[in-house]
């Protein structure tokens, strides 16, 4: 795994007038409901530890109320934590003065919002240039840079329109271009695509994946949509009631869900499309059959094998054989795991 870019350590967030005092109680094992009933404080985040690797997409997933939007706002300190540490590039974000923090927000971490949050009275060009204007970039230079990003997200020709004249998907492209224009290394995306309809959402995911291939930013992406998380995440962290339930790669989460909550989450996904051959294969380098790359989806591998009329396939990595996979293994892997055996559980 590559170098850690953002490191979150023992982060607590409690909402209420005497939040500091409540941290001890939560550390002592008090639950969210108990804290609310007895002390009238709301537990936002509980002992979150997460190392986010450089240049990868970290997805933070959870249902509404799980604290994911609260967590992402701690990275650029839009929300102050009650306790814990937030280290970015070895620098303590919580120790920054107001001026340092502004500089950090201007240069290092930019953000994309769920409801776009564009300035309605500014043109698309001026919206994209907003981050640059704030740090007093010369107008000519800003224009030139922003024009590139506007073209890059496919909005060329709309520079002089106002946000209200664009569709939701186009507005979020503006939001994305605005965040990219500052050249920040960290991109914070708070449910950035959740407000878009499914087709546009897929479209935007493609835009993001494309950009990422070229830019390699450290992206922190919040979503409540598992398909989205699996599609774009290099790593996924699942939150529930402010606590980290599981972190790992998409493959790990599908193959080894940490608990019923996660199993419930993943039970309806199309496993054949998400699981990769590499997660299913065995180590024996062997046999005949078509060659499939280890990052290929099981679905595609099965098609390849069916076409070749073979029950086995050779798994390759960079063209070299690294293992084998059988049809039975794949069928076993894509079968839905038995439903939760501890009775019906409901989650808020």
């Amino acid at each position: 795994m590559s170098k850690t870019k953002v490191s979150i350590k023992n982060l607590y967030k409690i909402f209420g007038p005497q939040a500091e005092r409540m941290v001890e109680k939560v550390k002592g094992g008090m639950s969210k409901t108990e804290l609310l009933e007895k002390h009238g404080h709301v537990l936002g985040l509980k002992d979150v530890n997460l190392d986010i690797p450089q240049r990868e997409m970290q997805v933070i997933m959870g249902l509404s109320g799980s604290g994911k939007s609260t967590l992402i706002r701690h990275v650029n300190r839009l929300i102050e934590p009650t306790a814990g540490e937030m280290i970015v590039d070895g620098e303590d974000v919580l120790g920054m003065s107001e001026e340092q923090l502004r500089e950090f927000r201007r240069r290092k971490a930019s953000m994309v919002f769920q409801k776009f949050a564009l300035l309605p009275h500014r043109t698309i060009m001026d919206n994209v240039a907003y981050g640059l204007k704030i740090r007093n970039t010369p107008v000519e230079e800003a224009r030139e840079r922003c024009q590139r990003w506007i073209d890059r997200v496919g909005l060329g020709g709309f520079e002089n329109h106002y946000p209200a004249q664009l569709s939701g998907g186009m507005q979020q492209r503006v939001g994305l271009a605005r965040a990219l224009a500052t050249d920040a290394e960290i991109l914070l995306m708070d449910e950035a695509f959740s407000a878009l309809d499914p087709l546009i959402r897929t479209d935007m995911q493609n835009v993001l994946l494309d950009l990422q291939e070229e830019l390699h930013k450290t992206v922190i992406f919040i979503t409540h949509d598992l398909d989205e998380a699996l599609r774009i995440g290099d790593n996924i962290c699942i939150l529930r009631d402010g606590e980290v339930v599981q972190k790992g790669s998409p493959q790990q989460i599908i193959l080894k869900p940490a608990d019923d909550y996660v199993s419930d989450f993943i039970k309806d996904i199309n496993r054949a499309r998400v699981l990769e051959v590499g997660s299913v294969m065995n180590g024996k380098i062997a046999s005949k059959g078509p060659e499939v790359d280890r990052s290929m989806a099981v679905e595609e591998a099965m098609q390849a094998m069916s076409k070749a009329d073979s029950k086995t396939a050779v798994v390759t990595e960079n063209g070299k054989a690294v293992g084998a996979v059988t049809l039975d293994q794949m069928i076993a892997a894509i079968a839905r795991p038995a439903a939760g055996n501890k009775g019906d559980k409901t989650y808020r």
Binding site: L78, S110, L118, T182, L188
Partner: peptide, 12 residues
């Protein structure tokens, strides 16, 4: 939300 965006981009 728009104010938050201004904050997030480091507006004074």
């Amino acid at each position: 939300e728009i104010l938050e965006a201004a904050d997030a981009f480091g507006a004074n």
